[in-house]
Design a protein around this nucleic acid. Structure first.
Lengths: 191, 191
DNA sequence: AAATTAGACTAACAATTGTTAGTTTTACAA
DNA sequence: TTGTAAAACTAACAATTGTTAGTCTAATTT
């Protein structure tokens, strides 16, 4: 495979992820994708092997980054609040890098066919690590005594859906976003 | 139309919303829906007029409740924090009443055909009222000086995705959930 | 210049889609 | 018991789906 082939494939993947974000995997046809790329549907198959493969490579690549990232974070010897901030920063970074892929990860994971079990395993591992940070933070007195699951899903949901509004906030600097979102999520909105 | 017809129609709508939540509107076929109802696909049309109608009635019914609800909340003569708590309570109530419909509202609104503009109008109105609460709260010194959009979307995203985990929390009482989620969102997770 | 190859094309496929038409069965009112 | 209407059924439709086969063209390598 040559460089030009690789970048053509990547261009298809990138455009596919954009369309998946707009309409969802199932509603995007290979003819839609081909038109957006500027080519006939059959020509796509010179570069990709299937529609399903586009989805699973897109999703799993990101999911692996998240799970590997949090496993590094949890084993650091720092307090829970610091870990939480690092998790927030990781979400922001990965979302800025690939907002369309994040949309697919969030909305289309159930359409993974062969790789669904692997995806679910990655997600379970991720949530387990995140939950451990919350539990440790409560035990050490850093976090409020609120139901773990409420605390967990309330933060996690905001982070998982950053892709919905991060692209619009082009004017906001990444470091500033990390700072403000950390404040909002950790210290709340009340003055 | 008789009572039995109405309840049959409602049963179809209810099951459809469940399937939409699992796989998304586009991935649910009328044959899937029929099988879940226990009937052949063609028989559905004795009760409904189209797949699209199921989606739009499901989504718009909820969207109207939200927009009407927040317009009542904003015009009350109470402080911003109280309004915020009422918005949170409304989200929890409507989500408990109809978690599957909430999923469709969140994930499948873009597949509305004739009614898409109306939906977007409702959503814009809703966000405008919500944003006004945030702006007022900052002005009155009740809320932190964080970017309005960050504060807005961070809360709103959590609320919009309650359907993802509320069904699992059957053991948790509604009033308790409102209390704990209000604390988490308004005062943050840090002790 | 000749040969090879990457990558576009047209045409077609088998399967699946939402929906309609027409018919039979079920259930209730008379 | 008979008549009527609701609601199930089978069969089919036209359109659309992902994908393959085979061909042509343009670019690159020899």
């Amino acid at each position: 495979m040559k460089k030009s082939t690789l970048s053509r494939k990547q261009e298809i993947y990138r455009i596919a992820a954009q369309l998946f974000k707009e309409k969802g995997y199932s509603a995007v046809t290979m003819r839609d994708l081909a038109a957006a790329v500027g080519v006939k549907a059959a020509s796509l198959y010179n570069h990709i092997t299937s529609k399903q493969q586009i989805l699973s490579e897109t999703i799993l690549h990101i999911a692996e980054q998240f799970t590997e990232g949090i496993e590094i974070i949890v084993q650091q010897d720092v307090d829970a609040i610091t870990k939480l901030k690092e998790v927030i920063a990781q979400h922001i970074s990965l979302t800025i890098d690939n907002p369309y892929g994040m949309a697919a990860l969030n909305n289309d994971w159930m359409h993974l066919e062969g790789k669904l079990d692997y995806y679910l395993e990655l997600r379970t591992r991720y949530e387990k690590r995140f939950r451990q940070i919350v539990i440790d933070g409560k035990k050490s007195g850093e976090l409020k005594e609120v139901h773990t699951e409420i605390l967990l899903y309330s933060i996690l949901t905001t982070l998982r859906n950053l892709y919905l509004w991060i692209p619009k906030k082009g004017e906001l600097k990444k470091e500033e976003l990390i700072e403000e979102l950390s404040i909002t999520l950790i210290q709340g909105v009340e003055k």
